[in-house]
Nucleic acid binder design. Structure first.
Length: 415
RNA sequence: GUGGCUGUGGUGAAGUGGUCAACACGGCGGAUUGUGGCUCCGUUACUCGAGGGUUCAAGUCCCUCCAGUCACCCCA
């Protein structure tokens, strides 16, 4: 249909653009405070980047990418997330040669071919940050603090921070074996979803909403109990720092990030009033990604915040302030010579920075005043034949109804 | 990709096979021709998401598709 946009996309209409700009400005401000610089990468990349970066067996790559062949025969994909692209840019422009860690942020549209739902769209927007080059838990804590404080600055409460460690290539395979060993004997009793998860992602079975499955997985080993010494120390370090910062969080042994590149710290911030899609922020460490993309082994960590979900949350909490951008003055005119005068006055006032409007529909005097009233202007300047003849304007205060005949030059002093 | 619900004007909606598709809000115009907000009046759907079918007759029944919405999967 010519008259409707593609499924899962939204137009951001003038009435809501202001809120977007506000949220974006809060994001930019906090990034400046924390020392993160904006990075703008293309909206599409070589498909290969996402296959390698995100992981070929992830849902995103298997069924959610907008992929097409361009006229040169290249396979191109609209970015489904921005971490891989940030790492690509980091390598391409040799950002590793500068001050470490490299701290970046981005705000922009992402694309995933999902079925639309509350809080989920095919084109959606993320504010995300990436810190590449630092391995210690300090940077993990910094990033989590940045996310939490961004959401708090917007006024959101009822946020829940979930924290876990998903281990590293040394300890995760061992854990996976251990978990599968535990679940294997009861596999037949799990729901069909869980049975299919067994091979693909057994950790997901701990997360099943089915109460039967939940009781079956009681007592299963937790990743956090099977971490190698290095991962354990790192995980403890992150918690210590969060404690020191007074940030409350819940350890969630079932928290798993869906993308292959995550290691160690995984976190998520939930805003439960949103319904099923309650994750407002998701992030974690990806120590293997830079090497996977062809660089030297380099640690990294980042998060992404879903802006649509943030806006939904702001709406739920009624934190969206109405902004007044009503005109300061509406110029009413009647007759051709008066119109010329009115137009000149309008230009003059706009040059001086006042918000001014006039009629563009050849309305009658009465209709112009009705319109001015609807626009909730404070003043109306009336220029008819009489006023035009003496080069003056009838300035009317719309609240008191009082009006006086004054020179054009006086108008801006009265506003 | 799977399932539930929904689809009437700019908006919210009545309408449960048969005269001009209620009503409310909004928009536009007007109420002796140079003055708004209140009130009153007029006007605003060759058409009921799209396309087929059943019927003498369909917004009302059937099918297909599309879209919205919520949930699963997954995720921001």
């Amino acid at each position: 249909m010519l008259t409707s946009g593609p499924r899962g996309t939204k137009d951001i209409l003038p009435d809501s653009v202001r809120v977007w700009q506000y949220v974006e400005s809060v994001a930019r401000d906090i990034c400046q405070v924390y020392g993160y610089k904006e990075l703008r990468t293309p909206i599409f990349e070589h498909t290969e980047l996402f296959l390698r970066g995100i992981g070929e067996t992830t849902d995103i790559v298997e069924k959610e990418m907008y992929t097409f062949t361009d006229r040169g025969g290249r396979s191109i994909t609209l970015r489904p997330e921005n971490t891989a692209a940030a790492v690509r840019a980091y390598l391409e422009h040799k950002l590793y040669s500068g001050i470490q860690p490299v701290k970046l942020y981005y705000i922009g549209p992402m694309f995933r071919y999902d079925r639309p739902q509350a809080g989920r769209f095919r084109q959606f927007h993320q504010f995300g940050i990436e810190a590449i080059g630092a391995a210690g838990p300090q940077i993990d804590a910094e990033i989590i603090l940045l996310a939490v404080s961004f959401l708090r600055k917007l006024g959101l409460s009822e946020l829940r921070l979930l924290l876990n460690s998903v281990g590293c290539p040394n300890c995760r395979p061992l854990y996976r074996d251990k978990l599968q060993g535990f679940l294997k004997s009861k596999l037949g009793e799990f729901c069909s979803d869980c049975q299919s998860r067994f091979d693909r992602n057994p950790m997901r079975m701990l997360d099943c909403k089915n109460t039967g499955c939940q009781s079956l997985s009681q007592g299963a080993p937790h990743m956090s109990d099977c971490l190698c010494a290095e991962c354990r120390e790192h995980f403890n370090g992150v918690q210590q720092l969060l404690n020191a910062a007074g940030i409350s969080y819940d350890l969630d042994p079932r928290l798993v990030r869906g993308l292959d590149y995550y290691t160690k710290t995984a976190f998520e911030i939930q805003y439960s009033p949103l319904g099923a899609q309650s994750a407002v922020c998701g992030g974690g460490r990806y120590d293997g990604l830079v090497a996977e993309c062809g660089g030297e082994p380099t640690p990294g960590i980042g998060f992404a915040i879903g802006l649509e979900r943030v806006l939904l949350a702001l709406e739920k909490q009624q934190l969206i302030a109405a902004h007044d951008d009503n005109p300061d003055i509406f110029i009413v005119s009647m007759g051709e010579s008066a119109q010329l005068q009115a137009f000149k006055l309008l230009m003059q006032l706009r040059e001086a920075g006042f918000i001014c409007e006039m009629d563009h529909m050849q309305r009658s005097l009465k209709s112009q005043l009705k319109l001015a009233n609807k626009l909730q202007v404070r003043y109306v300047g009336i220029i008819g034949e009489e006023e035009a003849a003496v080069q003056r304007v009838m300035l009317k205060n719309m609240q008191s109804g009082e009006q006086e005949l004054i020179d054009y030059n006086e108008v801006q002093h009265k506003l």
